[in-house]
Structure formats: structure tokens, C-alpha cells
């Protein structure tokens, strides 16, 4: 019961902040709400008894990545004059269409998951105990290839960013 209350409260906050992220006009405020959002997601992890994930969420997303966002926001001049919002290239209908598609997809997922069988039980057969160890074990056994691919992707992105940003190499 208490868990459910906590979950729904957190979820409400998460959604509320998510809306604020896209609704605020000031870019920096928007990034700030994103941080709050991440923090509440971390709280959700704590609720799920995954403290390691929670801490990593804070460390990587709230602490690291969003700082870089802020960095970019503060360095790059985003304070365009208001008329810049009336972008002639804006495709309003395309946006609506995309949103509708994504909404449909989400609905489909929700329907499918509620209609389908309960998901397979958690990987009970892990040879290690403890939250951290379990995450590590899964990452380096079952999800090794996605993990490595993800890290390659990050590397490529990093090099690409350097090439783009550095004027003279």
C-alpha cells in the first residue's frame, strides 16, 4: 500500500516535471526540470530496491550528462529574438502526425503488455547475490554484445563531436 502511494506520487512528479521540461520558455529552467526528473526516476529505482541503478542514474544522468547540456545551453546563444519562433520551415502537420504515431505505438505497447502473459520471472538463476553484482553479472554475460555496441556508439559519437567542434585539428 505504502509502496503504491509512493510510486504514484513519484510517477506524478516525474510526469509533471517532464511536462515542465518542454513547457518552460527558459532553456536553463528546462534543463533544471530535467535534472529533477532524473532525480525522481532515481527515487523510483530506490523503490524498486535497486540502489545501484539509482545511484548510477544520479551520477551519470543528473550529475554528468545534464551538466553538459547546461554547458551547451550557456555557451551557445539560444536567446534568439522572438520572431525566430515563427519558423517558416515549421511543419506543424508533420509534427502532429509523428506525435499521433508515437501515441499509437505507446498505446499498442500498453495493450499488448496488459493482454499478454505476465513477463518471465526475474533472472532468478543468477549465481551472485547483491544488487551491484547482479547488474554487473547481467551486463557482462547476457547483455554483453548490446553493452559493447552501446559503448562503441558512444565512442563514435564522442569522436564525431570532437571533429565537429574543433575548428582546426
Amino acid at each position: 500500500m505504502g509502496e503504491a502511494i509512493a510510486f504514484y506520487t513519484l510517477a506524478a512528479f516525474i510526469l509533471g516535471f517532464a511536462v515542465l521540461v518542454i513547457a518552460t520558455k527558459d532553456t536553463v529552467h528546462s534543463v533544471l526540470f530535467l535534472v529533477l526528473d532524473f532525480l525522481f526516476v532515481a527515487a523510483l529505482y530506490v523503490l524498486l530496491e535497486a540502489p545501484f541503478l539509482a545511484v548510477i542514474q544520479v551520477l551519470v544522468y543528473a550529475g554528468g550528462i545534464v551538466v553538459l547540456y547546461l554547458f551547451v545551453v550557456m555557451l551557445v546563444n539560444l536567446k534568439r529574438p522572438p520572431e525566430a519562433h515563427q519558423d517558416p520551415r515549421r511543419r506543424t502537420w508533420l509534427g502532429f502526425g509523428l506525435s499521433a504515431a508515437i501515441l499509437a505505438e505507446l498505446a499498442a505497447i500498453a495493450l499488448y503488455s496488459s493482454a499478454g502473459a505476465a513477463p518471465a520471472g526475474p533472472a532468478a538463476a543468477l549465481p551472485v547475490a547483491g544488487n551491484t553484482e547482479q547488474v554487473g553479472w547481467l551486463l557482462y554475460t547476457r547483455y554483453l554484445i548490446p553493452f559493447e555496441i552501446a559503448s562503441m556508439l558512444l565512442l563514435v559519437a564522442m569522436i564525431g563531436a570532437i571533429v565537429l567542434a574543433k575548428r582546426e585539428l
Binding site: 535534472v35 532525480l39 540502489p51 551520477l59 550529475g63
Partner: peptide
Amino acid sequence: LYIVSVASVGV
């Protein structure tokens, strides 16, 4: 990790 992550929010 808790210490490190909380410290990173302090930035």
C-alpha cells in the same frame, strides 16, 4: 557511489 553521485549534483 552514493557519495560520488551526490557530490556530482553539488556542481
